[in-house]
Structure formats: C-alpha cells, structure tokens
C-alpha cells in the first residue's frame, strides 16, 4: 500500500472533482498510515473478540462452527463502529473541516473519499483477515466465500451509515456513545442479511438473494449517505 501511495503522490494533482477525490483519498490514507496504532485498532479488536469466544463459551468445534457466522459478523460490526468516531474528529479539531466546508467543490466528493479511505483500512482489512480468523471458529470451508462476499458488500454500508453518526456527533466532546445509539439500529439489517448469507453458504443454499439485498443497501447508502453526512457536518461546524 505504501508503494501505491508514493506512486500516486508523484502524480500531479489534477483540478476538478475527480482530482479532489483522489487527493482526499490519498491524504486520508497517508494520515492513517502515519498513525499506526489507530490503523490496527479495528483488526486487533476483531481478533480479540473472536479469540475470546472459544474461551468464554465452549471450545467444542461443532458448537463454535454454529456460532461462527453470527460472531464474526457482530465482531466486524463492532470493530467498524469503534473506529467510526475518529473519522472527522481530527479534521474538526485542527480546522481542516472548516476549510473543507468552504471549498467550492462539491462536499459529496470529499465525504465519499473520506469514507472510502476509512473503509479500506477498516472494512476491507477486516474482510481480508476474516477467513484466517474464521478458521479459529471452525467455520467450514464452504462458508468462506459467503463470509468474504457478505463482508465485502456489507461493511461499506456500515462505514457510510456510521459516518452519518460521526458527522452528527463530531462537535460534541464525547460523541462515542451517542454514535452507537444513533447508528446501531441502522446496522441491524446489514447484520441480519450478512449473517444469513454466511449461514446459507455453510449449508450450501444459494446466497445470491442475501448478497443482492446487501448490494441494494449499499447502493442506497452510496446515493443518500454522503448528502446526510454533508448536511450533518454543516450543522456540527455551525454549532
């Protein structure tokens, strides 16, 4: 990933919304890579929860395999939620958010780039490590494609919806708890369809329907969430 960023950095910044999207994506990835402790936080949380399950519940393979789809999805959801608070926090504290809101460029673009950067380092990273961690819960090999696909399509929605909560609470001193309250109800459909997709894959049923529903949620989120995030940011900065 570092190679990708230096390569992108050597390119000239283009003018226009496309250039802004790339510039913001690169900036946010660079910021995250320079703050390594926060970078691995969601992954470590994910790993810890899954490690504790066999210890706390039962180490029996058959039982764990039954538990695995739900546990993996809940852990991924909570890991995403925990990382959400920092999305706009530093930008708010150092005044970058004000500059961003005063830009003549569409806010939609910047917001989408920031959420994409956040997802690449939380949701996408979780998706990539999920199969390794799923083995610890004895998830059958047939379930792996379902797990990865459902996380790949489901976690971007989690990031988009979580960003609305983050934008609404960024002006508050301690917004972390409030984000959870605001956002968790909206996470539930994603959790249900995500878990169902993995279970369907394990039992050998077709999972196209669940993935299509997750895709529909993602399409809805991509179209509407950036508008809500932008409006929420304006309210937070205005206060």
């Amino acid at each position: 990933m570092a190679d990708l960023i230096t390569q992108a950095a050597s390119e000239r910044a283009q003018i226009g919304p496309g250039g802004l999207f790339v510039a913001t994506l690169r900036r946010d990835l660079m910021l995250s890579l320079r703050r390594k402790s926060e970078l691995v936080n969601p992954l470590i949380f994910f790993l810890m929860v899954i490690t504790l399950f066999p210890l706390g519940v039962s180490p029996e393979p058959g039982f764990l395999a039954q538990l695995a789809p739900g546990a993996l999805w809940v852990a991924a959801l909570l890991a995403t939620l925990l990382s959400m608070d920092s999305l706009f926090r530093t930008d708010f504290d150092d005044g970058s958010l004000e500059q961003l809101l005063l830009s003549p460029q569409p806010l939609f673009i910047v917001v989408l780039a920031k959420v994409l950067a956040h997802w690449m380092l939380s949701g996408l990273a979780l998706t990539l490590v999920a199969p390794v961690i799923a083995v610890m819960l004895f998830l059958p090999a047939e379930g792996m494609p379902g797990l990865m696909l459902s996380l790949l399509i489901g976690t971007p929605t989690l990031s988009l919806v979580g960003a609305i909560g983050a934008a609404l609470t960024v002006g508050l001193k301690r917004g972390g708890v409030l984000i959870s309250l605001l956002v968790l109800p909206l996470y539930i459909p994603v959790l249900i369809f995500g878990t169902s997709a993995v279970q369907a894959a394990v039992t050998g049923l077709p999972l196209g329907g669940y993935l299509a529903l997750l895709g529909a949620l993602l399409a809805l989120g991509l179209a509407l969430a950036p508008l809500a995030i932008g409006a929420a940011l304006r309210i937070s900065v205005s206060g």
Binding site: R27, M30, L31, R34, R35, T90, D93, D94, G95, S96, E98, Q99, L102
Partner: peptide, 15 residues
C-alpha cells in the same frame, strides 16, 4: 472568491 483563515489553522500535524 473567499479565503478564510480561522482560529484553528487547518493544518494537519501529521502531514
């Protein structure tokens, strides 16, 4: 047509 220089400088410490 506006340049706004706010209370917070809008400079990222890590960049």
């Amino acid at each position: 047509e506006l340049l706004y220089f706010g209370h917070q400088p809008g400079v990222k410490a890590l960049l």
